[in-house]
Structure formats: C-alpha cells, structure tokens
Design a protein around this nucleic acid. Structure first.
Lengths: 77, 77, 77, 77
DNA sequence: GTGGTCTAGACCACG
DNA sequence: GTGGTCTAGACCACC
C-alpha cells in the first residue's frame, strides 16, 4: 500500500529512513524545527507534528532549549 | 513526578487504557472528534493530535466520513 | 497538471472520457445514481457530486424522475 | 420561464460574474466558506458545492489551511 | 535561540 | 456530519 501522500507522513517517513539507515546517527542533532520547516517547505506546526510522531516511536528525543536528537536504539526490530 | 503531563499525552494515555482494558472493544466506534474535544475541554486540534498518535500506534483506525474505530488487535502483549 | 485522483474527480474524468469518445452517445441514458455508486464503489452522494460537475460542464442533463442523459454537443472542443 | 436556478447555481454564477468582471481580482482571497455561507444565507455544504464547480471551471484555487483564491486567468475565451 | 503545547480556523474528501 | 491535513500564531520553558 502506498502510504506516501500527505506532507507530515512523508516527512516522518523520510527522517525515519535516515535514522534507520544510519544516515542520522544516534546522538546526532537534527536541524532546528524552523530549519526543517523551511527545508521541507511546510509550516513549523507540520514539523512539530512529525516530531510528535517520531518521539512517540522512540526514534528521537527533544531537549527544549537545545534541540532534537536521534535516540539511542533500544530493542526494536 | 509523573502526574500525567500535557493534555494530548494525558488524553492519549486515557484512551489507550480504555482500549487495553477492553473498556473500548475492537470495532467499537469512538465519539466524534468534536464530542471528544468538548468532553475533554480541549480544542479539536488537540484531539486530532491524539488520534494521530493512536493511529500511529495502530490502536485505532479512522474512517473519514464515518468515524474512528478501535482497531482489531494484531500481536500486542 | 495532475488529474487528481480523489474519487469524485476520478469518476468525473472517466465518465467525461466515455462521453468524449462516444462510448456514451448523446441522448443516451446513464445508469442510475444508485447503480453508478455501486459500480464505482462509492457513496451515492459522491456520484451526486460528480453529476453536479458534469452538468456544469454541459456534458449531461438531468431529468428529474427520469434519469440523467448525455447532452447534445454544442460547440465545445 | 424564469431563470429557475437553484441556490448553488445562482451563487456560482454570481461569483463567476464577479471574477469575470474583475470585481474579484486574480490572486485575491475569497471570504471563508463559513462567511460565504452566512452571507448568502445557505448551508456550508452548498458553498462547498459551489466551490467544487468554480474549481472545476478553473476560476479559483483552494489552498488548504489558508483559503480559496481567484485563479490567474489562463487562456479562456 | 531552542523545543513544545495549545488554540483557532482554513480547505478537503467522503458518507 | 465525519475525519484529516495544513497554516498561523499564540504562549511557555529552557539555554
């Protein structure tokens, strides 16, 4: 099934891929929400939604005032 | 410490509990987004965020034009 | 520009094609709303929306109580 | 017989006139669906139907989250 | 500056 | 009427 369609899901998938593939390593800092918003051509709120999902999936950790970092893998697949 | 934090996470937890406990059975229809918003005293957007998470967790399925339903359990604990 | 693949637009396109190609001849009667809904696997109201567009395009004419008929071509392309 | 038009067609015509006459200029934002509904004294769904037609005619463009805008004229008559 | 929550409201597609 | 996606910007807390 072609999941890809809407922005926030597409972006969530792309970032997830980068993490799974190691393109974004554990502990690494993601660009700021503002930067990501501009980069993907969407509103900050949309990036926030993406981060809400990624955090819920345990893929990233947000540190207010500092940034969002790739989480250390636990025991997922 | 863990006094249930923010609205959306608290609500997501509450609904998750109801599903896990069987209070909300698989196939059952949840109240409409608008109703839930009023019931929890938050804006529709907040409920939408909750549903985004619950759907991502595979706990519920949204059927546009009809409603949100508790998903059939797959292989959870 | 893309043909947009949402149901109502897709169906409108398909029927338009059939008319343009002569597969559906002027004066010919279309299947009932109910039949079309079942045929395309959508809700009746979606077919109604399609018909609203087709009528606006001057491709079909509705005759209440009788049915929807392919319109006589005027001078469109 | 009088013009015999139903609401949605009448409104579609009125707005089309405003666009053709330049009363509503290209790029200009239309009032929100809700406002138009109130203004014309009809239900929101009626306005939605009007917009479906206007979009199909290529007269307006919807931008989710922002509004509906008068389209740049292409090459109609 | 950063992330994060929440409100508010827009259009959209479908029933 | 339903869910869904998106924009926009409020306000907060942290650094």
């Amino acid at each position: 099934m072609p999941t890809e369609k809407v922005d926030y899901r597409r972006i969530a998938t792309e970032i997830t891929e980068k993490i799974k593939s190691g393109d974004l390593a554990p502990g690494e800092k993601l660009p700021s929400t503002r930067q990501l918003a501009e980069q993907y051509g969407v509103h900050i709120s949309t990036i926030n939604r993406v981060m809400t999902i990624l955090k819920d999936r345990g893929l990233v950790e947000g540190h207010p005032g500092k940034g969002v970092y790739v989480a250390e893998p636990t025991q997922s697949s």
